[in-house]
Structure formats: structure tokens, C-alpha cells
Nucleic acid binder design. Structure first.
Lengths: 169, 169
DNA sequence: GGTGAAAGGCCCTAGAG
DNA sequence: CTCTAGGGCCTTTCACC
């Protein structure tokens, strides 16, 4: 699937603010609202972007754990497939490095966490080493920064535009 | 800051679909649209939720790296403070486990990645051990699942409501 | 904290280039 | 893939509880 520079601009806008309207995004990237929506649908269906609400687990009283797993004897994909099915696991990716799989999970309590680790993850055939890091405090969790590309149209501009009714371009 | 069960329901709705309208969320949680918006603003300003577009790095041709860092000689907070300032780093959290800090970063190329690792992260005073995992393929990255709470009003219901014009409740 | 009303903007589909 | 047009829904702000 091809992703052009306009697609990337749309993604950047959504990284900065997932609720920004397609009309505003269209103005910022120089496309009509309908086209932005069509592109978003395409990107969304392809699994390239998704707009989600992200919650700070510790602030909510939840427990977030980042797990690194080393696989032995079976394929990484077969282990991943079983982990994906566990609802508390929100992120699964294969990796190169000291471990083969990166898994993030979120749950209600240490009891719940313990159960998932010992009764679900460690029991998956092929899971050899499990390294667990429990999140204490999130210092930064942001997609606000658009990458190496410039944010030529900051959010404030959107607000000004609305207040004054002025229309650029 | 207090977070009640309605706040959690609102967060759950946004986890499932970050672009869901406040009007629909209000219907689903049994509150007026204005109230949902007010609660969202409060949660958002407190840094408890943020709605963002998430992009699949490998599919975009970007490189995503998950890093675990062990700190020695200085406080974890002082190291975190310096890492937070690096724009390519999108996630920083303190942790308990074999490492003290969890850092996720995203960049354009291996050259770019290498520069950040060797010239920025490793040069931070107190950074002792750096364990790097490069994401190959994302198998799951979802906040679709609302947690241990039930999703009593699936997205399809929203669609049906719109198509038929019927209004529940 | 919560609601409801009015004005304006946005969302979404359809149809055509 | 892009745009325009339109009806309906949503957002925003306000005054008020």
C-alpha cells in the first residue's frame, strides 16, 4: 500500500490531536474534507492508523507492565498468536534484540497481573525467558510531536480561525 | 483528582474509538453531551486521557525501538528528565524490575536511530545499561478492548442509530 | 457538578469529473 | 482520487439549576 506525503501529513495531524475535525485537517493539508475522510478510511482499514483514547494507567490506579519475552523451540509467530488472544495484553510486537517479543499489558491489580503472568503467559509453549517491568510513573507519553516533519499549523491557529471566522487559503 | 465510574466509562468509550462523538458517548453512559464534554476536558487537562492517532511504525517505514535502561549513580528522575527532552522519544516511564526506565522511541532510519542511541541516550549521565529491542512487526496494538468492564454499547449500535434515525433512551 | 437551547460548523453520502 | 452539495448531526457557548 502506498502512503504519500499527504497521508503522512494527515497522520501527523491526528498524532497531535486525534479529535481534530477532518475539515480542519483538510485546510491544513490543502485537501477537501471528503478527500481527507476517504484517505483516513483507507489508512484506518489498512491498520496504519487508529485514533484511540489513551489513559495514564498509574493515574487511574491500574497497573501497566511491559514484558520482554525470549522464545525457544517454537516460532515467535506461534507464541505471538497465543498472546494476542489475551485481552489484558494491549500490545504485541516481534523484535530483534535480546528478546524476541515485546508485550504490554494492563490490568486491575497485582493479583490479576500475577495470574496473567503465571497462568497465561508463562504457560504458553515456547516462552523461555520473561522479563517484566512494572510502570511506576509515566513521565512522557505523547504523540503530540509530529516527527521530523514540521507542524506548520498549530492547534491555536484552528482556535483563532474559529473565533474570528477568518478563513485562510 | 477523583475519577468516578462515569469517567471510566467515558475513557472506555474513547479507548474503543477516539473519534466517537460526545453526543454518542453521552447516550451510552447516560449523561448529557455537555457533561461528557466537561468531564473529558477535565480528564484531558489532568493528563489522564489523551486522544491521539497512533501509526504503525513498520508499515510506515519508520523504526520503532523499545529501550530499557538501568541507572547508576544518579536518580532515575534526573535521567528521565533529560530523556523527555529528546523529541524522538515518545514514551518515558519509571519502572520496577530489572531496569529502571522504559523508553520508546521512533525515528526515520537506522542512521537516525544510531545517532540518538549513541549520541543522546548513552551520553546522559547515569545511564548504565541500555537494552534495545527493535520492533519488527506489530501483531496487536489495540485499546479496543475496554478493560474488565463491559462494552454495553458496541459501535454497530451507533451506526444503526444513525442510519435509521431511531433514538434509544 | 448538572441541564437544555440556539447558531454555526462538521460529518457523511451521493453524484459527477 | 478528487470535488461540490445537501441534510442531519454534532459542537460550542450560553444562561440557568
Amino acid at each position: 500500500m502506498d502512503i504519500d506525503s499527504i497521508d503522512r501529513k494527515i497522520i501527523d495531524q491526528l498524532r497531535m490531536d486525534g479529535r481534530r475535525s477532518f475539515a480542519v485537517i483538510g485546510r491544513n493539508v490543502g485537501l477537501s474534507e471528503a478527500s481527507v475522510r476517504a484517505r483516513y478510511r483507507r489508512l484506518s482499514k489498512a491498520g496504519i492508523v487508529q485514533v484511540v483514547g489513551m489513559a495514564d494507567a498509574p493515574k487511574l490506579g491500574d497497573i501497566e507492565v511491559h514484558v520482554a519475552i525470549r522464545v525457544r523451540g517454537v516460532t515467535v509467530a506461534s507464541v505471538a498468536k497465543q498472546l494476542v488472544a489475551i485481552p489484558e495484553i494491549k500490545f504485541v510486537a516481534s523484535a530483534v534484540g535480546a528478546y524476541d517479543l515485546i508485550v504490554d499489558l494492563r490490568c486491575e491489580s497485582v493479583v490479576h497481573l500475577s495470574g496473567i503472568l503465571s497462568e497465561r503467559i508463562r504457560r504458553v509453549n515456547g516462552v523461555h525467558v520473561v522479563e517484566t517491568l512494572t510502570v511506576l510513573e509515566v513521565m512522557k507519553d505523547t504523540y503530540l510531536w509530529a516527527g521530523f516533519r514540521e507542524d506548520s499549523t498549530p492547534y491555536t491557529q484552528q482556535v483563532i480561525r474559529r473565533r474570528t471566522g477568518a478563513v485562510a487559503r
